[in-house]
Amino acid sequence: MKLCIKTKLEYKASVIINSISQFLVFFTYYFMVVALFDKFNNIKGFNLYEIFICFGVIHFGYAFCETFFRGIDRFEDHIIKGSLDRFLVRPKNILLQILVSEVDFVKVFKALQALIIIVIGIVKLNINLDILKIVTLANMLISSVLIFLGIFIFTASYCFITVDGLEVKNLFTDGGKYLAEYPISIYKKGVFIFFTFVIPYGFINYYPLLYLIGRTNNILYAISPLVTILFTGLSVVVFYKGLKRYTSTGS
């Protein structure tokens, strides 16, 4: 991992531009929310700062995965080039090796920004953080990382079957990410159900958010992010199932 950072640092100008542009990318999304709320004052009863928390949580998870687990996002390359075999002969855990095979530390800034936005949201909303709420928040952040990890692993497993039509993956990562920037209750029923029971985005930033901003006192809402452990666990199982069937493409 250290090595990876060093190689990237070789292209100094590029790293600087990269970091600035990452900052800008994120800032623009953030800005879009602010701009819209300048004209409108709420969306289905949620105000700007509540959206901030929702938004920050989802982006934190995604940026975190992009930073440290970039390798799995490019899993199809390993299959196509046959370089997966290289990992297989090593004595360490295969999934772990792939996860950390590439680190894109520029994206760290994005994760940091996401945290800042969450903090702004919390401060502006005057949430008094007791232990339980802090735990809830931590829970949300961790599960946000877990859910994207899970999705990445799922799509990687899909590569064992075919590498065709991988663009569909973007629907679940990018598409899902955009949808889940806002509390999922603002959408129509179908979307709501899909993102609660199929891909549990709802559990990372909707149900716990309700608890965090004091709309409900039900403790179940606070611990609901734990559902994502199931999701990621399932993805790991599927991955190993796929791995068993894997026959190398290399010679």
Binding site: I43, K44, G45, E167, L171, G175, Y182, I186, Y187
Partner: peptide
């Protein structure tokens, strides 16, 4: 299919936004 999906997504978002701010002139 990606484009259709994203189109729907944006539209759902804007519909929600307009529905909850009926009185405001957009």
């Amino acid at each position: 299919s990606t484009q259709l999906f994203f189109g729907f997504m944006y539209i759902l978002f804007y519909i929600a936004l307009y529905e909850s701010n009926a009185g405001i002139s957009a």
